[in-house]
Write a protein that binds this DNA or RNA. Structure first.
Length: 423
RNA sequence: GGAGGGGUGGCCGAGCGGCCUAAGGCGCUUGUCUUGAAAACAAGUGUGGGGCAACCCACCGUGGGUUCGAAUCCCACCUCCUCCGCCA
């Protein structure tokens, strides 16, 4: 959420940010209009409250019963007026919040201009694609042939876009999760195991609500929401907290399943396990001082990249342009791994510096060591990495001419002594 | 699920209709003293908002209510602790 003072004092900056994102800038004017009305109402009701407070003190000191009663009668009417105005004020406040909450973050000056994901520049390409002496197969053929991915069983259990991993396939995914978590721990992150269902406050704090309600699963009975990413609970952990400056930065990593209704992507990527309603992910998350967040972003990009590199995958880093930048993000990079079987770059990580955007929503502050005013922390999040897609790249990259899959060296300790998946 | 007891500033903790403008302590900042540090002493120090400012308003788990006036009384909910019941 943006600072209302920023919108009020520099409305053109916010309008320009929306235009760069290929969005309509008119919410800015709507906010300014409500804000003006809201503050006028606030001044009015506060003046009345000041009067009430002063008179109440007077009443408490009055000895003469008749005069006292007269004052009390006069105040009764004032009380009713305050109550009506207060209600009107709350309405305006809610109206303003509703608009401010759907305005996205302001892109950092370093974010390249662009219309959509086609304009995302490729920053760097790492490694080379593996050379095959045969035609590499896509994972939707490899998996069922080896009996490690079963699409029919997933459909039987839940429906389309669900699948069952079996035997060495399930184990390989678990190996990836365990190995990634251990890698991030070595990189200095603290592992967290969090609830996979959260209250709506937490989704408001992390920026998923109210805007992305349609992409979330919600248990109406208990008002629990299934997390769409570990970013949500990792933001919520410190909701409302005051942090001492010396304690920063916090570096967290967590494995969670992620649940997404994917209404907006219905009909896309229907083949294979690339896009499902349930997938696994290992996430990295940082809380830091504002002046450190750009450097921390670079570190996180490296930490995520390390994951791809150690797995021996061919991958590239692209930067999200203004038209593709996520709602919360100020600046973001994506990592994509090459899947030689299906012949496409798969997004396995998106690493964002969201600045104080989530911290303001979540009210997460730190007290500067010099004793100055509390400030909002900056938060960053990045996948390290998204699972089914990493699994796809591993299966397709390490496939052999006989249809078997070699196990990448780093994962062998978790695979019970096997170095290859065969029929 | 049932019964009882709690949730107060960065932290601990008192207050249970109007001098609460929330005691006291810890922590923090500054000063005195000291070669320096510690200790001691003194002063300051909650958060958010409105106003050019003086100043004003709100906030004592959350939301309602009673009252001229609520941290304080009433109702609902959340949450923690103790006990009972039920269950992996």
């Amino acid at each position: 959420m943006l600072d209302i003072n920023l919108v009020r004092e520099n409305p053109e900056v916010v309008r320009e940010a929306l235009r760069k994102r290929q969005m309509d800038p008119s919410p800015v004017d709507a906010v300014l209009e409500v804000d003006t009305r809201r503050r006028a109402a606030l001044s009015e009701v506060e003046a009345l409250k000041a009067q009430r407070n002063a008179t109440s003190t007077e009443i408490s000191k009055m000895k003469d019963a008749a005069a006292r009663q007269e004052k009390i009668d006069a105040m009764r009417e004032l009380g009713e007026r305050i109550s009506r105005l207060d209600q009107a004020y709350k309405q305006m406040e809610a109206e303003q919040l509703a608009i401010v909450q759907i305005i996205p973050n302001i892109p950092h000056a370093d974010v390249p201009l662009g219309m959509d994901d086609h304009d995302n520049p490729v920053i760097q390409v790492y490694g080379k694609p593996r050379e095959f002496a045969f035609t590499p197969k896509p994972h939707w053929d490899l998996g069922p042939d080896l009996g490690i991915i079963d699409f029919e069983q997933g459909i039987k259990l839940t429906g389309s876009r669900f699948y069952v991993l079996s035997g060495a396939g399930a184990r390989l995914q678990r190996a990836l999760i365990a190995w990634m978590l251990d890698l991030h721990i070595r990189q200095g992150y603290t592992e967290k195991y969090t609830p996979f269902m959260v209250k709506s406050d937490v989704l408001l704090a992390s920026g998923q609500l109210p805007k992305f309600k349609d992409n979330l699963y919600h248990d109406v009975e208990e008002d629990y929401w299934m997390v769409p990413t570990a970013e949500v609970p990792l933001t919520g952990i410190h909701m409302g907290d005051f942090i001492e400056e010396a304690a920063l930065p916090f570096n967290y990593t967590a494995y969670t399943p992620c649940f997404r209704r994917e209404k907006m992507s219905a009909g896309r990527d229907v083949r294979g396990i690339k896009r499902g309603h349930q997938f696994d992910k290992v996430e990295m998350y940082k809380y830091c001082r504002p002046e450190d967040s750009m450097a921390e972003l670079q570190k996180m990009v490296q930490d995520a990249g390390q994951t791809c590199a150690d797995l021996g995958l061919h991958y590239r880093m692209i930067q999200q342009c203004t038209g593709d930048l996520g709602f919360n993000g100020m600046i973001a990079y994506d990592l994509e791994v090459w899947a030689p079987g299906c012949g496409e770059w798969l997004e396995v990580s998106s690493i964002s510096n969201v600045g104080d955007f989530q911290a303001r929503r979540a009210n997460i502050k730190y007290r500067p060591a010099d004793g100055g005013k509390p400030r909002f922390v900056h938060t960053l999040n990045g996948s390290g990495l998204g699972l089914p897609r990493t699994l796809i790249a591993v299966l397709e990259t390490y496939q052999q001419s006989d249809g078997s899959i070699q196990i990448p060296d780093v994962l062998k300790p978790w695979m019970g002594g096997i170095d290859r998946i065969t029929k």
